[in-house]
Nucleic acid binder design. Structure first.
Length: 508
RNA sequence: GUCAGUGUAGCUCAGCUGGUUAGAGCACAGCAUUCAUAACGCUGAGGUCGAGAGUUCAAGUCUCUCCACUGACACCA
């Protein structure tokens, strides 16, 4: 039975930014981890292509909305390709199957009695494109951002009766693992406890969207469209679009990995919608933090926007993945600092891990015929093996909880232990006495074996580095299966070792 | 405005129920050193723990006030 994991479906109003790249990288790391453990997963990403903003952006560019969507969606596809993201699906909400699914979903929810016609009233700012909360006594309110006058709008909309699910949602959001991280869970619990209001699911002034069946002039508004992409993405192309088929193809999602800004919609609206449609709920919703650049919010006006594509061209995916996943606690906000980024990549990947492999292969080749040592010698306790076993257990645990930073730390600890082990054993001194050769063989083997474990454990985070390391150990074939190889002793004595080259070069 | 969270070495962060000289990693300095990507290892310098007051034999750790930042407070894709 397969399970799905998802990134947000990114809004194609503009080209991809670092934030969406961050979500995608994290989800990719998790997907890679699950696959290594042998799980049958479907990694879903995609784009949300409807709405007024897109309609307007396209008009501004003098092209049709669909042209605009094609352009931007293509950019996303290309970018994920460049980053070597391993998504299995890429859903576009303008696709025909998605449209069918949305219609079916709506009819089901309507049949359940959870749809009603109502009026959306309020003070609307054209600039912000949203309704503003204003002081009731204010007869002519202004937008606090744009400072212009707000328009009074009274628009007929369809509503989803979220309030029907107050009890169920309350229970759900309080449950132990549904919302993560914990701090955000509290916000949501708080919010729900104040009482849920029905929300509108259609617009009458937006043409660029999916028409609501039976309601002339209405198109679906974001949440009743975009969120359903998680479902429509799962149906195989040849399969008839049917909600009942979903459980065969990976629904419910194991986790939705999203930015903290859209947590509420995923943790409250979405489950209620699914309940109404009689579908299973996702197991978990993880709202990660936002990135700043050198301590400041990224913004056009500040001109400090980090372009993920340029970043990739300069540094390559491993360096950036490592920095984002190993230095920023997943779930908290993070700051991209160029100096720190370079320092950490060089210190952790090139020095601690890369150089460890390099020095050990060099020794092994020099003293053991360009091969992994062959020996019969054994010591009673093998401290490195114990360290490796601890790391294996810890790292699996951390990955399971999406605690990438902690996982990376544990891997780094193992590599450091191996470096210390070498300095402690001093094989380069021992080897001067011929009688020590067995001992040296044993020590070198232990360190090489630790490198092998490191390379496997680190794979979800920095896949290229991992593969490079395994190649140098002549163990490329072990890359895809943790169940088989992620335990001590799978490095073969006497296997050939080629001349080591740095597995990752230093940056800047 | 209301509620919640954060504020600890240059940087990123640990410090549970209060208890000897406040910790780690990175960066920096010195030493050592070749097996290695000037890498690894060792040593060191660096903090009035946001500010002030209080409780206590004892507070980074509890209470109060203040300051700064962040988030939530419903339609922000």
């Amino acid at each position: 039975m397969s399970i799905s994991i998802t990134t947000p479906l990114y809004y194609v109003n503009d080209k991809p930014h670092l934030g969406s790249t961050y979500s995608t990288i994290a989800t990719d790391a998790y997907a890679r981890y699950l696959r290594l453990k042998g799980k049958d997963i479907i990694f879903v990403t995609g784009v949300d292509e409807h709405g007024q903003k897109i309609q307007r952006t396209a008009a501004l560019k003098g092209i049709s909305p669909s042209e605009h969507c094609n352009d931007v969606s293509k950019k996303y596809l290309e970018l994920w390709d460049k980053w070597k993201i391993t998504n299995d699906r890429f859903i576009r909400t303008t696709s025909e199957s998605h449209k069918k699914l949305v219609e079916e979903f709506f009819l089901r929810v309507k049949a359940k009695g959870d749809i009603k016609l109502g009026n959306q009233q309020g003070w609307y700012c054209v600039g912000c494109e949203e309704y503003k909360d204003v002081d009731d006594t204010d007869e002519e309110p202004n937008c606090p951002i744009h400072l212009n006058k707000l328009e009074w709008r009274d628009e007929e909309n369809l509503f989803f009766c979220l309030s029907n699910y107050q009890k169920e949602i309350e229970t759900l959001v309080r449950s132990k693992y549904f919302i993560q991280p914990e701090s955000r869970k509290n916000e949501i619990v708080n919010f729900v406890s104040k009482g849920l209001k029905d929300f509108s699911i259609s617009r009458v002034d937006v043409t660029w969207g999916i028409s609501v069946p039976g309601y002339q002039g209405h198109t679906f508004y974001v949440w009743f469209d975009a969120l359903l992409g998680y479902l429509s993405s799962l149906l195989p192309k040849e399969e008839e679009v049917k909600l009942d088929n979903l459980s065969k193809y990976g629904w419910p999602a194991n986790v939705h990995i999203i930015g903290k800004d859209i947590l509420r919609f995923h943790a409250i609206y979405w489950p209620a919608m699914l309940m109404s449609a009689n579908l299973e709920l996702p197991n978990k919703v993880f709202g990660h933090g936002f990135l700043t650049s050198e301590g400041q919010k990224m913004g056009k006006s500040l001109g400090n926007i980090i372009d993920p594509e340029k970043l990739l061209e300069i540094y390559g995916e491993d360096a950036i993945r490592w920095y984002l996943l190993s230095d920023i606690k997943f779930g908290q906000d993070g700051d991209f600092q160029n100096q720190r980024f370079c320092d950490l990549v060089n210190s952790n990947l090139a020095n601690t891990i890369g150089n460890l492999l390099n020095r050990t292969i060099a020794m092994s080749r020099k003293w053991f015929n360009c091969c992994v040592p062959i020996f019969t010698y054994k010591e009673e306790s093998n401290s490195l093996m114990s360290k490796a076993n601890v790391s294996i257990e810890e790292v699996i645990n951390y990955y399971d909880q999406l605690s990438f930073k902690e996982a990376c730390q544990s891997i780094l600890n193992l590599a450091s232990s191996a470096n210390l082990y070498l300095n402690d054993k001093e094989p380069w001194k021992l080897i001067k006495e011929d009688s020590n050769k067995e001992k040296v063989a044993y020590y070198i083997y232990n360190v090489l074996e630790s490198c092998r474990i490191v390379s496997l454990l680190i794979n979800p985070v920095v896949p290229n580095l991992s593969l490079n390391m395994l190649k140098q150990l002549n163990l490329e074939s072990q890359i895809n299966d943790w169940n088989k190889y992620l335990n001590w002793g799978h490095l073969n004595q006497g296997a050939e070792l080629t001349e080591p080259k740095p597995v990752i070069s230093k940056i800047e």
